[in-house]
Amino acid sequence: MNEYNFAYLDEQTKRMIRRAILKGLAIPGYQVPFASREMPMPYGWGTGGVQVSAATLTPKDTLKVIDQGADDTTNAISIRKFFQKTANVEVTEVTKDATVIQTRHRIPETDLSDEQILVYQVPIPEPLRFLEPSEPETRKMHALEEYGLMHVKLYEDISKHGAIATSYAYPVKVEGRYVMDPSPIPKFDNPKMEMSAIQLFGAGREQRIYALPPYTKVVSLDFEDYPFEASKAEHSCELCGSHDSYLDEVIVDDTGGRIFVCSDTDYCSSQQQIIKEAV
């Protein structure tokens, strides 16, 4: 594959993205505008994540790509193939063997190390967008640290439903300063965001990059009397028996029968392996 540059993007584009990543790391949770490029896959398919990965990958990296926690979902396969083709990097499905992990909607169950980089695909980076549609307005709100609207929204949830009715893309506050969208991960994953790995977030269509250095303080917004709760289905995995991993519900027959299985396919198979070896 020689028709395109290493990792597809030209060097000038990579420099522009790299500068945005560095400022993102220097101002954790703040959304850095960047001149997102048109990628050979549609907006909404992870163009932001792909651009961040392309600017981050070195020829020595081992890449893992997951979508919904799984390595074998069609879009994860497609993105993995894209980088195999354009960057000629090693790929893996094993979380601990990967140096760069691109993800859509999940954080792996296995703890990440300080040698790893987690790249998120982000659809709407602005946590205040659904409360205030105007970009200049939300930018001002971040500048003034004016997050009252967000608390009002969460509080209205409580008065209407008796609980905070946000189950994914649950907003967080970073280092006590910026309110940040964690991307549409289930709120079950929110506590994992305080981790050893570097976390990079790319929103292609919305032209924003943001980042969290390792060990950055990430607090899910809540109220004293309605504390944040990282919830999941109250079942265990049908395949590996795990009680503490995030589960997908699968409908198995037409009489409404259903089972629960790990959303993280690598974690599930490694748990199954442990059980097999113990027997």
């Binding site: 549609p42 907006y43 909404g44 398919w45 163009t47 979508d67 919904q68 926690g69 979902t73 069609t74 879009n75 909607h105 999940r106 659809p123 439903h161 008796g162 609980a163 009715a165 189950s167 994914y168 893309a169 549409p184 991960i185 289930p186 709120k187 079950f188 269509r205 919830s231 999941k232 289905a233 995030y246 589960l247 997908d248 519900e249 959303s263």
Partner: peptide
């Protein structure tokens, strides 16, 4: 069109969290 059509990609992890929430409520 990208953002519109992307909603046909898998979203079952998010949908699952919504299912759990609505059952709980």
């Amino acid at each position: 069109t990208g953002f519109l059509e992307h909603i046909k990609l898998p979203h079952y992890v998010d949908f699952q969290s919504e299912l759990e929430l609505i059952r709980k409520l």
